[in-house]
């Protein structure tokens, strides 16, 4: 019976990583589920749900050539198939201002203490080298109202940072 694996590859960004990995998987008779990739600085990471009839060892051996050629770190974990269970975020949180240490920790501590789960998080350092601006964007799911969460976050990060929390109202039509 086919099993699901989470395949994670990390390395220095270069053209053709996704093609090399997915090509090797396809040639080896694997089936891809959902995938997410991120490029940050000059690093690259991709997570892929892969369905495959044989064991973990075979899966690794399929990827050996690509991993060696592109100097990637590979991680393979057996997982339960979890397609068709998307979590829909209902809150959008934006935090931005002059960069300083601790922004992510302060914000996410509030979210965790309220039982909110983060569906999506992205941060950027913009501005100039002398005056960096930090921009954080989060989509989360939780029961707290946008207004209440916003005031608690503003209190937690203090003055100097802008915090906005808005409802992410889903139109289903």
């Amino acid at each position: 019976m086919d099993k699901w694996y989470m395949v994670t590859a990390v390395g220095k960004d270069q053209t053709g990583i996704v093609a090399a990995i997915t090509g090797a998987l396809f040639d080896g008779g694997c089936h891809l589920g959902e995938a997410s990739m991120a490029r940050l600085g000059d690093s690259f990471t991709v997570m892929m749900m892969v369905r495959h009839a044989n064991g973990e060892k075979t899966l690794r051996s399929l990827l050996e050539a690509a991993v060696e050629k592109m100097h990637l770190h590979l991680h393979v974990d057996p997982v339960d198939g979890v397609l068709h269970h998307h979590v829909i975020p209902n809150l959008r949180i934006s935090v931005f201002g002059a960069d300083r240490p601790g922004i992510v920790a302060q914000v996410t501590r509030v979210l965790a203490s309220d039982g909110l789960s983060i569906c999506h998080l992205e941060t950027d350092v913009a501005g100039t080298q002398e005056r960096p601006i930090y921009v954080m964007h989060i989509e989360a799911k939780g029961r707290e109202s946008a207004e209440a969460l916003q005031s608690r976050l503003r209190q937690a990060v203090g003055a100097g940072l802008d915090v906005r929390v808005a409802d992410l109202d889903l139109v289903i039509g």
Partner: peptide
């Protein structure tokens, strides 16, 4: 910008 789903496109927003 807003989030949408559709009954003609199940399990995706």
């Amino acid at each position: 910008l807003g989030r949408e789903g559709c009954h003609s496109v199940p399990d995706y927003t």
